[in-house]
Write a protein that binds this DNA or RNA. Structure first.
Length: 1011
RNA sequence: GCUCGAGUGGUGGAAUUGGUAGACACGUUGGACUUAAAAUCCAAUGGACAUUAGUCCGUACGGGUUCAAGUCCCGUCUCGAGUACCA
């Protein structure tokens, strides 16, 4: 019986689908286990072999847990809103929903071929109105909530209104906008409705506000900080500029501390935690208020608040620096300095984010002419502006202490500002001194002689006493902009009355995306939804109606922005628990049963995007009592990237030039064509290319011969063309050859190029000539690069499944190396795991049919089996899937050698293999006589008694070097071992009569004789 | 610059608490079977010298601890990832 993998795999994939083998029940006595993959964006390119890596790992784990008796939730879906489908729509007019549907179909086909145990009945798609209904619903919940710092959680906005009505806002301790005006209960009651709404907007967890955003003109939308890489958009690499726009924002900053604290509770990779920690960027320090000095010109004093992590250095302040965008700049600048300051502001505004970041060395700034008063010394301090101070961090103003901060130091040096030294016994003539561990403060009045920590405490105490400062914790994390000027995203359930946003009642959700003619912004610069003609809210009918009906009495305009990509992914893991529920986002029963994700596998690129926002939404849902856990995923693993192994051929481009032999001496287009088609596709072998700068004589000869033959051949084809044979291409040979990518599918396991396939690949290679290696083959060069179409190194899982089967693919992906590591794909190696499966098959069947029987297993059989059970179980628990594949190979090699046919061994072996290679396992299981799927067969139980040994091969070392092995009984004690070793002839031979200084015996491990 | 991670044969990678470095595969070489190919099976395979036994070197580099170091400590280099004037 042959191992016919194509047939077997198709059979079982059909079986699983038909029998809903992997459907998870919400009501079960079994213990739950939730294994989740980051759901994919269904791109048009389909999956390549790098994509399923994490899915295979999670699938193995999910299947393993089923064998272990758990009720496993293992769902899959699609993050199906997004830019590529929309960009495609702009170019072709094709509705993104159609492209998306097509792409999802293709993804599903590809996924099905790999044999995943997903519960497809729970599939979600973020672009499905039934799904985004609940995204809109969460948005409304956020809108209707505020963050109470006293209870340290989100609360219903009604509780805030109640407090306003009772006592105004003076005692409210909320996370809110900075520019809150104080009011009393009477004030509140006297405010107009719209004034009240404006105020509430300053407290809501999602709010509309004019903010500085990252505007990307290339994409026509704003981007979140995590969507920008090196000053350009992550997708497409378009430039990004700062722009003030009215946008929805999420008050994620309210959760900064809890997001930080929560990291300690979860088992996530340290680098991922580190990058979230950095992103949140907590720093402890003080906020200090300086007051500007009144001069004749600037008649008012203004407070300038700064944040500093080094309040202990306050006596070292010799100037202040404001960000050029700081609001006060225009107020305080003197007329004398006005021209300079304005010129500077204009110059910095022109510099793009990218320039500013690329060029941190150039020091620039301008003096405003104004001064602030030092809170303690009362000395006047010059106020400068400089673009090294960022408007977006802290208050956009710093107290500059050049002796303690290198940036302040450089700025002071550059503009000749004094650098007072306030550190005892420290030389600051060359650079600032920023080490706070060893510092002792001097020249600082009441701080003299104090170390850092004490000085900080003291100065904060003094500042509080005078009402000019207090201890403060600052976060780098900004509120997240939630509006996108795009079509293909969730519409907001929002309409506008007098310019103020109103939520549509939850019962009317979903508000579905309107149809538009064009997916581009409108001529007036509004987002694409501005093109919709049926996009107004009728409050009485409670439905979306035509725009022409807008009367601002009962019919109002709807929001034109859509939600960002991360909106749909921020709660999808909970929605899977009850995905078809139309009445609730998920039922209480479902969430209480499934609780949270036990294992989450996905890429590390989502560290500061999806994984931070999801944690924020989860904490919010937790505060509202909607979910029982405030962290949604207990354990998370980042799978490594699979890179491609590109193949190169080496082109030789000889610039002979040619003439014609005919009397007119004219070259026609055909002549040129004949010449270039012949000489443009010449390839030299790798050995010569590798020595191109230092060719040996024999190589030179070989090349000369090769080229001569080419020219001869060319002449016979084009007798009237003259080639310059005197041209010496061997001098400066390097400059005529260069590598070009060849498609990896033309290359076999030995790196040999299939020349015929290569010639057919492209028209210009039709007549390609190759200088082969001496062995008569053309060997390609190989290099590891990112898998990408342009590098012709993309391998699709479909081809692999077709040729070797899904089980081979699954095993090979795991066998490549540790899950978390990035590693190169090379199809050549798959014969290893494929061969293993064939060998496994032959353990059960030969040409005649089944081999297995009820024979009593031998001691060796049992030893091999239980060794394997132990190792495989440990490996799965440690997510060390690569080593368990090796273990299977060893096991099958051993059982084959033992000629094992015992059912008592082969049955448990099928279960062991089943999570990794489920199709073959099912088939073996069935052939063994079982009627039920192997999916829930209990995992074999390890029995250590089969591994007990009575003797051990001891390695005998001399001075730490292993010289020979010696078999000794395991129950022999130290002295016994030493005596046996010393008595051995090989020991005596090694020692040559010398007496060892010392003999180290570690029973069960090693013997080391020290001479 | 800062933070984190990683450097082991021709290649992917093993090596659990410090205890036989290179498991398991790929590739390569030789052999068997075959008209031939594929498939399968067997043997060898870190390097150097010796080809019988054996000896020396070897886990990025330089030191150290230890009877014993890929593993622990100190320093250096290289590569990768994240972050970037964060006061």
């Amino acid at each position: 019986m042959q191992y016919n993998f194509n047939e077997i795999e198709a059979k079982w994939q059909k079986f699983w689908a038909k029998n809903q083998t992997f459907k998870a029940e919400n009501n079960s006595d079994k213990e739950k286990f939730y294994v989740l993959d980051m759901f994919p964006y269904p791109s048009g390119a389909g999956l390549h072999v790098g994509h399923p890596l994490g899915y295979i790992a999670s699938d193995i784990y999910a299947r393993y847990k089923r064998h272990k008796g758990f009720n496993v939730l293992h769902p899959m879906g699609y993050d199906s809103f997004g830019l590529p489908a929309e960009q495609y729509a702009i170019q072709t007019g094709q509705h993104p929903a159609i492209t998306t549907e097509t792409n999802i179909k293709r993804y599903r086909e590809q996924l099905d071929k790999i044999g995943f145990s997903f519960d497809w009945s729970r599939e979600v798609r973020t672009s499905n109105p039934k799904y985004y209904k609940w995204t809109q619903w969460v948005f409304i919940q956020l809108f209707n909530s505020w963050y109470n710092k006293d209870s340290d959680k989100a609360e219903d906005i009604e509780t805030l209104i109640a407090q306003f009505e009772k006592e105004g806002n003076s005692n409210v301790n909320a996370v809110c906008d900075d520019d809150i005006v104080e009011f009393s209960a009477t004030d509140w009651k006297g405010f107009s409705n719209s004034r009240q709404q404006e105020i509430l907007l300053q407290y809501r967890l999602t709010y509309l506000a004019e903010t500085e955003v990252n505007w990307c003109p290339g994409l026509g939308t704003v981007l979140a900080n995590d969507e920008i890489v090196n000053g350009v958009s992550e997708r497409g690499g378009h430039p990004v500029v700062r722009k003030k726009m009215t946008q929805w924002s999420m008050r994620i900053t309210a959760y900064a501390q809890r997001l930080l604290d929560g990291l300690e509770k979860v088992d996530w990779p340290q680098p991922l935690k580190d990058s979230q920690t950095n992103w949140i960027g907590r720093s402890e320090g003080a906020s200090v208020t300086f007051h500007t000095v009144t001069s004749g010109e600037v008649g008012k004093t203004y407070p300038i608040e700064v944040f500093t992590t080094r309040p202990d250095t306050i006596f070292g302040v010799s100037f202040m620096t404001l960000a050029p965008e700081h609001d006060l700049v225009s107020e305080i600048t003197t007329s004398e300095q006005k021209a300079e300051v304005e010129a500077y502001i204009e110059a910095t505004a022109k510099r793009s984010e990218r320039d500013r970041m690329a060029d941190v060395k150039t020091i620039s700034g301008a003096f405003t002419g104004a001064y602030a008063e030092h809170p303690f010394t009362k000395e006047p301090i010059p106020i400068w502006i400089g673009d090294y101070v960022l408007a977006g961090y802290g208050t956009g103003a710093v107290m500059s202490v050049p002796c303690g901060d290198q940036r302040d130091y450089d700025f002071a040096k550059h503009f000749n500002i004094p650098i007072p030294n306030i550190f005892e016994g420290v030389d600051i003539s060359e650079e600032a001194f920023s080490d706070k561990g060893s510092v002792v403060i001097a020249n600082s009045d009441f701080l003299n002689g104090l170390p850092y920590k004490k000085a900080v405490k003291r100065v904060i105490f003094e500042l509080e006493k005078m009402g000019q400062g207090k201890g403060k914790i600052n976060y780098r994390l900004r509120d997240a902009v939630f509006s996108r000027q795009r079509y293909w995203g969730e519409p907001f359930p929002v309409y506008y009355v007098d310019g103020l946003p109103q939520m549509i009642d939850a019962e009317h959700l979903p508000i579905t995306l309107p149809e538009v003619e064009k997916y581009l912004p409108t001529e007036t610069g509004e987002p694409p939804l501005g093109n919709a003609t049926v996009w107004a809210w009728d409050r009485l009918k409670a439905e979306v109606v035509k725009n022409e009906l807008i009367d601002n009495v009962n019919v109002f305009p709807l929001e034109l922005n859509t939600m960002p990509g991360w909106a749909g992914s921020s709660q999808y893991f909970n929605r899977y628990m009850d995905p078809t529920n139309d009445n609730e986002i998920f039922s209480k029963d479902a969430i209480n049963y499934w609780q949270d994700v036990d294992l989450y596998i996905g890429g590390s690129e989502h560290a500061t995007g999806h994984l931070l926002y999801s944690r924020f939404w989860q904490k919010f849902m937790f505060d509202k009592g909607l979910v029982p856990k405030d962290e949604f995923a207990k354990k998370l693993i980042n799978q490594g990237m699979i890179t491609g192994t590109s193949a190169f051929v080496y082109s030789l481009n000889l610039p002979f030039g040619f003439n014609l032999r005919d009397e007119k001496n004219k070259t026609t287009e055909e002549d040129k064509e004949a010449y270039s088609s012949f000489f443009e596709a010449i390839f030299i072998n790798k050995s010569i290319y590798d020595c191109r700068s230092n060719l040996s004589d024999s190589q030179k000869k070989q090349l000369k011969c090769f080229v001569d033959e080419l020219i001869d051949e060319y002449h016979s084809l084009n007798p009237n063309h003259i080639i310059d044979r005197t041209f010496d291409f061997l001098t400066d040979f390097e400059s005529y050859c260069y590598p070009i990518h060849a498609d990896v599918s033309f290359v076999n396991a030995s790196d040999e190029l299939d020349i015929e396939a290569f010639k057919e690949w492209r028209l210009e290679y039709k007549n390609a000539r190759f200088l082969k290696e001496d062995i008569g083959k053309y060997i390609v060069g190989r290099e590891v690069e990112k898998m990408s179409k342009s590098k012709y190194n993309v391998v699709s899982p479909d081809e692999i499944c077709e040729e070797y089967g899904a089980d081979s693919l699954r095993l090979y992906e795991m066998f490549l190396g540790p899950l978390e590591q990035s590693k190169p794909w090379n199809t050549a190696g798959i014969t290893g795991t494929h061969g293993f499966l064939k060998k496994l098959w032959r353990l059960y069947f030969d040409e005649k049919g089944a081999k297995f029987n009820d024979a009593e297993p031998t001691k060796d059989n049992l030893k091999t089996l239980h060794k394997t059970i132990k190792k495989v179980e440990e490996d799965i628990e440690n997510f060390s899937f690569n080593t368990s594949v090796s273990t299977f190979m060893i096991c099958v090699n051993e059982l084959s050698a033992q000629k094992c046919t015992s059912r008592a061994i082969l049955e448990p072996l099928a279960i062991l293999v089943s999570p990794y290679a489920p199709h073959i396992a099912e088939e073996l299981w069935e052939q063994l006589g079982h009627n039920e799927s192997i999916a829930t067969a209990p995992f074999p139980v390890f029995d250590g008694s089969h591994l007990v040994e009575s003797s051990k091969q001891y390695p005998i070392s001399f001075n730490g070097k292993m010289r020979f092995m010696l078999e000794l009984p395991l129950d022999l004690d130290k002295d016994g071992i030493e005596a046996a070793v010393m008595a051995h002839e090989k020991t005596q031979k090694q020692l040559e009569g010398r007496t060892p200084k010392k003999v180290i015996v570690v029973p069960g491990k090693i013997v080391n004789i020290v001479e």
